[in-house]
Structures are given as structure tokens and as C-alpha cells.
Simulated scan of single mutants.
Amino acid sequence: MGKLKKGFIQIYTGDGKGKTTAALGLALRAAGNNYRVCMVQFLKTSRTGEIESAKKLEGNFKIYRFEKKKGFFWTLNDCEKEELKKEVKKVYEFCLKALENNTCDILIMDEVMAILSNRLLSVEEIIKLIDKKPDNMELILTGRNVPEEILQKADLVTEMKNIKHYMDKGILAREGIEY
């Protein structure tokens, strides 16, 4: 049984940097207050600092990845996309079980909107997940281009807006900052 009396649905979206970082900040705060946090990361397979940090939080914060290492979605061939779709279905089933069994206080679905954009899951499937959220669990969804039907289900929506970014000058993602 979770500690939250009332959990909400939060969305971090927009074209700016910080969606995953905001979710991780909330996870860090919650784990420090002894909440059980589960984060599933879609379309992320490379080593990142958050994976290493979560290991150090003594069991209150776990990050799950189900996908095998691949390139970016747009670089995959049809066979690789089909394999990815099967892996995404496993993540979906994991999330459904977490919601049905109330196995965490906070469930973060990082880059789930990219899964929708790439048609690896449907809007209806994500709404089904949202509708299964127990009252005492917080659900956090991240990613760009949130469909209107999902926005309507949210209690909080924060848009990260890109005003200026050093990547526009050719600066690549930096270890410890972007990953």
C-alpha cells in the first residue's frame, strides 16, 4: 500500500530540454522521502547517469529498461521495428501490472509520447493505463507531442519550451548533463 493519499497524473512535454530531468528530480525527491518509485524508459538503451544514481538509492528508486540496444527509431529497418514493438509491449504489460498491483507509489513512463508518435502503442492503450491508475499512485508521463485525449486526463501539464540550446551550435550531448 502506498503512502500517497491522492496521486495525480503529471505530464512533462514540449520541445525543450528537461522533461526526463524533471521526472528524475521528482523521483529523487520522492525516493528521499521513502516513496517507492518505478521509472520505465522507452527508447533509451545507452548507459546514462540516472541508471547509476538509481542503483545508489537503496531500493526506493528503480529504473527499468526492456529494449535491446538499437539506433534511433528512424534508422531501424522493418524487422528491427517489429522487434522493438514486441519489446514495447513487454514494457506496457509491466506498467499495467504495476498499476493493477499497486507495486509503487510513483510510476514514471519516460518518453512514452515518442512511443505514440512512432505508433508502437496506441492512444487508447495509454488511456487504458491512465484509467487503471490507483488513487494513491502518482503517474508521470514524458515526451513531446501529447495527444489531446491524454492531455485531458492529466492533472498537471508542464511544457518545456526551447528558447536557446547549445546543441543548435553543434554541441553534442554531454555525459552527466544530457545523459
Rank of each mutant, 00 (worst) to 15 (best):
K6M: 14
K6I: 14
G7Y: 14
F8T: 11
I9H: 06
I9N: 06
I9Q: 10
I11S: 05
I11Y: 04
Y12N: 15
Y12A: 11
Y12I: 15
Y12M: 14
G16V: 03
G16I: 01
K17W: 09
K19V: 03
K19G: 00
T20H: 01
T20F: 07
T21N: 10
T21L: 12
T21Q: 12
T21F: 11
A22I: 08
A22L: 02
A23V: 13
A23T: 08
L24D: 02
L26W: 03
L26D: 00
A27W: 08
A27S: 14
A27N: 10
A27F: 05
L28Y: 10
R29T: 10
A30K: 05
A31R: 00
A31T: 05
G32F: 05
N34E: 14
Y35W: 05
C38K: 15
C38T: 14
V40L: 15
Q41S: 05
F42R: 09
F42L: 01
L43T: 11
T45W: 07
T45I: 04
T45P: 07
S46M: 14
G49S: 08
G49F: 03
E50M: 13
E50L: 13
E52M: 09
E52F: 08
E52L: 14
E52R: 11
E52T: 03
S53L: 15
A54M: 00
K56M: 14
K56I: 08
K56W: 00
L57D: 04
L57M: 15
E58I: 07
E58F: 04
G59E: 01
G59C: 01
N60D: 11
N60F: 15
N60K: 07
F61R: 02
K62A: 05
K62M: 05
K62H: 12
I63F: 10
I63R: 10
Y64R: 07
R65L: 11
R65S: 09
R65H: 08
F66D: 08
K69C: 00
F73Q: 10
L76R: 03
N77A: 03
D78P: 01
D78S: 12
E80A: 01
E80P: 07
E80M: 09
E83P: 00
E83S: 10
L84F: 09
L84N: 06
K86M: 14
K86E: 15
E87W: 03
E87I: 02
V88T: 06
V88L: 07
V88C: 02
